[in-house]
Nucleic acid binder design. Structure first.
Length: 739
DNA sequence: GAGTTTGAAACT
DNA sequence: CAGTTTCAAACTC
């Protein structure tokens, strides 16, 4: 479950360590404290760094006792918890809340992901330790005692006693774990800004509601996870990982945030944020932990802006992700994460990819988002989203129906949302600008209520209450381009959804006000782009409605499809049942003639074998099928041949190119280097001079014209002969020199 | 490239 | 649930 190591404090503004509290709450959950699922040993420890405390039981404030032996030593600034796993296992068995060690308001969240019986060492900050560059240009809350920000060398989680640097090399590899999902996300480096306000770290996540525990239960549709630092004085401030300028996230050293998944208490998700101040800030930081089966680890790493981001999961191979791109892990409907990475190139457009959903979403952030100052935390189902010094608002996922939204403008004001170039502050095009047009009254579109679980195109992420005119639209990635090109403008309206306060709707119409033709939904059903939740782009489709110009109609079609089949936009290929590691078709194929050995078969096309849920006839796409084996062999052989041919072609091409380069004489002809080209500009000029000279001689001799022409032609022939002779000689010389 | 085959999706 | 329709991709020639 959600676990936060003390290093999380390094994410926070420079504040007194002893007054600092870290907590994790799920977006939408009222409790500001860490809602740790006790599936694995997790505990929250509040310690006093001035004293050395040893014992076996600490009464927590409202939480459980930590019965495991522990040692808190101020001398070495460590907290050693022994066999916490066992203790927390008991808590788990009892279904109890996470354990907390609490003294003087200082709280450490400890997880025992590792083996039972091995101690957990938490490196506490040294008294008087300096922030260590953790607060570049940060602001501190007025009146707040200025205290050094602790530097955490290491927080070892998972039964490892040795301390490791916060940023380590690739040597720290997770051990091979079965049924474990390792997810590594790098977060683009962000400009550090600071605020003393408490910080919430939100990792949006689509949640399978079935796996939600009471503590993490959120409104049924969507949820998020929030790491919260609470303060009795300053209202909580929320920062999402997606914030392009999220403050302390990148400015504090050594951050490892362990977050447990919402879905299942048996899973543990670890978010590790590398230190940007470290020289190895871009290196992979992997928390060396032993994780039990079924655990899920999400490692969030920080990297310099502009550097590629790698996403590593246990299911998919590493792939390069550009800064600003969203990184998606997991799959829709499961315990997946939606890690939102700031879009470096377009600060006000953040792409969000929902794992497995094949959708590419972007978050549109307006200037008001960036400039808005401070706000109280979220209310009700929606987590707090206001950020005092952040340039963009955290994505807030809320319960209930979610509706597409763009930055909402009060009254009749129209805002055009368009990606801005890198470096430019997010802006909202005001109504006075030329491209703005008032399209339609701000009325809700109740018919557009996509289910966030499915995250169809146009899903809305609502702004937090009290955050002003800020909305978030989750739209397909193509939306970004189309927003730039489209003559349409968006008009948002207030939401009428009681279950989703702040969720707003939008409606779009052509600029000329003409009502868009309602497309035949049927036409969209067979469009792969539409089925994939994408806008058509460079397709050959005629009268295409799957574009931004027909967004309203498209949204209706989406809703129609979802009404008909709530899983219409979910990927067909997913993981099998519990224990089935292989992928399989969610519905199974229905082939009759192809024997499931042609690409007509969706199973075969996905390179998976048919399963028991398939209704195919004469299926030959199973493990022992000789036809399938033969086909596989043939395919492999064909692939080998293609590779060999490609290699041969490449080699031949290279040889020819090399030969031409070596045999080409160094003869300049108009700047070009032409092989065996001797008719250069100089040769031509010389030849012409010879011909002219011959003509002058004929003229001086007063020869008749035909005779003069004959002399000129003869001279031309002599010139050609000399050119040819020179070329042959040069070639012979080149051959003799083996050049 | 045109025509045919095939299966998914939607409809009845 | 079965049959039909429609469609687009896969496939064949």
């Amino acid at each position: 479950m959600d676990v936060v190591s003390p290093e999380l404090n390094s994410l926070l503004p420079e504040r007194s360590w002893t007054r600092r509290q870290l907590s994790i709450s799920i977006s939408g959950t009222p409790s500001p404290l860490l809602t740790l699922k006790p599936a694995l040993a997790t505990s929250t420890a509040t310690t006093r760094t001035t004293d050395s405390v040893t014992g076996t039981s600490i009464t927590t404030s409202g939480l459980q006792k930590l019965t495991a032996p522990f040692t808190i030593s101020a001398a070495n600034h460590q907290i050693i918890l022994n066999k916490v796993a066992q203790a927390t296992e008991a808590a788990k068995a009892a279904g109890a809340a996470p354990q907390v060690l609490k003294q003087d308001g200082q709280k450490l969240l400890v997880t025992t992901i590792g083996k039972p019986g091995q101690p957990i060492v938490l490196q506490l900050p040294h008294a008087g330790a300096k922030p260590g560059g953790a607060k570049p240009g940060g602001a501190q809350a007025p009146g707040e005692p200025k205290s050094p920000t602790p530097q955490f060398k290491v927080v070892t989680i998972g039964g490892r006693a040795e301390q490791k640097p916060a940023v380590s090399g690739a040597a720290n590899q997770l051990p091979t774990l079965q049924a474990q999902q390792l997810k590594t996300v790098q977060i683009a480096k962000k400009n550090p800004t600071f605020s003393a306000a408490p910080i919430k770290l939100i990792i949006a996540k689509t949640v399978n509601s079935k796996g939600l525990s009471p503590q993490t239960s959120v409104p049924s549709v969507i949820t998020g996870r929030v790491l919260t630092q609470t303060s009795p004085v300053v209202p909580p401030r929320t920062i999402t990982l997606s914030e392009p300028h999220s403050t302390s996230l990148q400015s504090l050293p050594g951050k490892k945030i362990a977050i447990s998944p919402l879905k299942s208490p048996s899973k543990v998700t670890v978010v590790s944020v590398a230190s940007p101040t470290s020289n190895a800030s871009q290196k992979s930081v992997t928390l060396p932990v032993n994780v039990a089966l079924g655990q899920q680890i999400l490692t969030v790493q920080q990297s310099a802006s502009g550097s590629p981001v790698k996403v590593q999961t246990s299911q998919t191979s590493a792939q390069a992700v550009k800064p600003g791109q969203s990184v998606a892990v997991g799959s829709v409907g499961g315990s997946q994460f939606k890690a939102i990475i700031p879009l470096a190139a377009q600060p006000n457009v953040q792409q969000i990819q929902v794992p497995g959903s094949r959708f590419h979403y972007v978050r549109l952030v307006t200037a008001s988002t960036a400039s808005s100052t401070g706000g109280t935390g979220g209310t009700g189902g929606a987590a707090g989203t206001s950020g005092a010094s952040t340039s963009s608002k955290p994505m807030v996922v809320s319960a209930g129906p979610v509706r597409m939204s763009v930055p909402i403008v009060p009254a009749q004001t129209v805002k055009q949302v368009a990606p801005k170039p890198l470096g430019s502050a997010p802006q909202v095009v005001s109504a006075a600008q030329t491209q703005q047009r008032l399209i339609m009254p701000a009325t809700p579109l109740p018919q557009i209520q996509p289910n966030f679980a499915n995250l169809p195109p146009g899903t809305v992420l609502a702004p937090a209450p009290g955050t002003g005119n800020v909305g978030y639209a989750v739209v397909p990635a193509q939306y970004v381009t189309q927003l730039q090109q489209s003559p349409f403008v968006t008009l948002a309206s207030s939401s009428g959804f009681p279950a989703a306060p702040g969720i707003q709707t939008q409606a779009r119409l052509p600029v000329n006000g003409e009502p868009a033709h309602v497309p035949d939904v049927w036409l969209l059903r067979y469009c792969d782009c539409f089925a994939n939740g994408e806008f058509c782009n460079n397709c050959n489709c005629n009268n295409c409605f799957n574009n931004l110009e027909h967004e309203t109609e498209r949204m209706k079609a989406i809703k129609t499809c979802l009404d008909r089949n709530p899983e219409a936009f979910k990927p067909k290929i997913g993981k099998g049942k519990e224990g089935e590691s292989d992928r399989r078709h969610s519905k199974g194929c229905n082939c009759k003639r192809s024997g499931c050995l042609k690409n007509y078969c969706e199973c075969y096309e996905a390179k998976i074998m048919c399963s028991s849920i398939c209704k195919c006839v004469g299926c030959k796409n199973f493990e022992e099928s000789p036809e399938r084996k033969t086909l596989m062999h043939l395919a492999d052989a064909a692939e080998v041949r293609v590779q060999q041919q490609t290699a041969a072609k490449t080699k031949l091409s290279s040889q020819i190119s090399d030969l031409l380069m070596r045999t080409a004489p160094v003869v300049s002809s108009g700047g070009g280097r032409l092989p065996y080209t001797f008719v250069t500009k100089e040769v031509l000029e010389a030849t012409c001079e010879c011909l002219l000279e011959q003509a002058k001689r004929a003229e001086q001799a007063q020869l008749p014209a035909p005779e003069a022409e004959r002399l000129v032609l003869e001279e031309f022939g002599h010139c050609l002969m000399r050119i040819i002779s020179s070329a042959a000689k040069a070639k012979a010389d080149c051959s003799s020199m083996s050049c």
